[in-house]
Design a binder for these strands. Structure first.
Length: 438
RNA sequence: CGGAGCGUGGCGCAGUCUGGUAGCGCACUUCGCUGGGGGUGAAGGGGUCGGAGGUUCGAAUCCUCUCGCUCCGACCA
């Protein structure tokens, strides 16, 4: 993509409503545009990142055997009355009345809907276990939206739901998601720590939140320092194997948000205790028969007896992750995208639009890099070098290829790594090798 | 929902107290010089001052109502 063709409205100054780096950079780099409080349009650059995150989540969820579906954003009120949450959820739920005076709502989550879907189609224990997920926009009428997409009213969430015949099966499903979450966040360059969590309005007796450490996090967290050394399961992972040992390891050391914090443990841990702030990016629940009982979702077991489904639900804040990743990865100049989710892998800066050789070599590199299958954003504007450097650093692409007359005299360009700030002069013919050789 | 504050050009702000021709920086347009970290000169374009009503010869400025946004607190992926 040529920058002169791209819709990327960047700002030199930060809008005053942006209080934290991720919000400021997302506005300044042209990722999002606020529509109203807590509601945003996603612009091309931001949407690319969002899609990249979605895709990482999708691939890993599919690996676990979970199957993707897509449920509606608008839900009928009846099923929420059945579960009892229509009243419980309060004003956060956006309620709508259609032209026939039917009560509807913009879904803040989908436990009722999936339970309704499942109970009306599944009859036998032979159909279990199942795990279904979707990535759909949710709406929670937050009293006070803030921090940009980190705490918006409208947000994209991946939510998965597991159905098992018994508790043992449900724990297996829970463990699969637990391990998948470790891997998903890891693939985005994040260190996410699972912590014992409150089950809140979803209910249940087993629950973990996954938190990314960041100074601007909304939650205060405490953890044993060694938890940061635990290994995330690699690509060889087999989701049908016994995962309990992995879960046991990751839950063996103390880690808790302030709501679940235990002062006695803190005293015991002493120097091993770390205190920090965290951003919740995932939350998994095992809640048993809470919804299946309320909504009569059952199957026949092998003896022909009806049994209520054992369920769990598993959320990931997809749109929030865009902000969370920036919080975890930026400097004073701008965003530093991890390669796996970067909107483009490479940015080309042509320092001299009026220099024929610079234009020619930049054009050639642009084609060559694109042909090699690497996504590339080409700054072909007639701007000063300083402006282009500042802009590219703000956008935060992992690799910058800087083409200028000085280097071209020697047949070289400069390649800069945004994260390490390391620069190396590279002969024109070696650029592709350097970029793809990693 | 309690408390506080702010709405003036795309962004950041001054002007409001004390009513009298709407300003500044950045961004934008054209031209020139410049060209390896947001350079520079000249010439331009763009705002019924959030909205409605009122007071006044005259309202961005005073009064009333209203809408929106932000911050602190309580709540949430």
């Amino acid at each position: 993509m040529r920058l002169t063709d791209y819709f990327i409205p960047t700002l030199r100054e930060s809008p005053k409503e942006a209080q934290i780096p991720s919000h400021s950079f997302m506005l300044r780099a042209g990722l999002i545009k606020q529509s109203s409080a807590g509601i945003y349009s996603w612009l091309p650059l931001g949407l690319k990142v969002l899609k990249n995150i979605e895709e990482i989540v999708r691939l890993e969820m599919n690996r676990t055997g979970s199957q993707e579906i897509l449920m509606p954003t608008i839900q009928p009120a009846e099923i929420w009355r059945e579960s009892g949450r229509y009243e419980d959820y309060g004003k956060e739920m956006l309620r709508i009345v259609d032209r026939h005076d039917r009560e509807m709502l913009y879904g803040p989550t989908n436990e009722e809907m999936i339970t309704d879907l499942f109970r009306s189609t599944i009859r036998s224990y032979r159909d279990l276990p199942k795990n279904l997920y979707h990535q759909q926009w949710k709406f929670r009428d937050e009293v006070r939206p803030r921090f940009g997409v980190m705490r918006g009213k409208e947000f994209l969430m991946k939510d998965a739901y597991s159905f098992d015949l018994d508790r043992e099966g449900a724990i297996r499903s829970y463990n699969q998601m637990f391990v998948a979450y470790l891997r998903i966040f890891n693939q985005m360059g994040l260190k996410a720590i699972p912590m014992k969590a409150e089950t809140g309005p979803i209910g249940g007796d087993l629950s973990h939140e996954f938190l990314v450490l960041a100074d601007t996090g909304e939650s205060e967290v405490f953890y044993h320092k060694d938890i940061l050394n635990f290994k995330v399961p690699n690509d060889e992972i087999d989701y049908s194997s016994e995962l309990q040992t992995i879960v046991d390891e990751w839950t063996s050391l103390y880690a808790a948000t302030s709501e679940k914090a235990d002062q006695n443990v803190h005293t015991e841990l002493n120097d091993s205790l770390m205190s920090a702030r965290g951003i919740e990016v995932g939350h998994i629940f095992y809640f048993g028969t809470k919804y299946s009982k309320a909504m009569s979702a059952s199957v026949a077991d092998s003896n022909g007896n009806l049994r209520y489904l054992e369920m769990g639900s598993y959320g990931i804040g997809v749109s929030r992750l865009v902000g969370a990743i920036i919080e975890a990865s930026h400097d004073d100049k701008g965003i530093i995208w991890p390669e796996s989710i970067a909107p483009f892998k490479v940015g080309i800066i042509n320092l001299r639009k009026d220099d024929g050789l610079c234009v020619k070599e930049s054009d050639l590199l642009y084609s060559a890099i694109g042909d090699a299958g690497l996504s590339v954003l080409y700054d072909d504007r007639d701007e000063s070098g300083g402006a282009k450097f500042a802009n590219m650093d703000l956008i935060g692409l992992p690799w910058q290829v800087i083409v200028g007359p000085r280097g071209l005299k020697e047949g070289q360009v400069e390649i800069k790594n945004r994260a390490t700030n390391q620069k190396q002069s590279v002969p024109l013919g070696e650029v592709l090798n350097v970029l793809s050789g990693r």
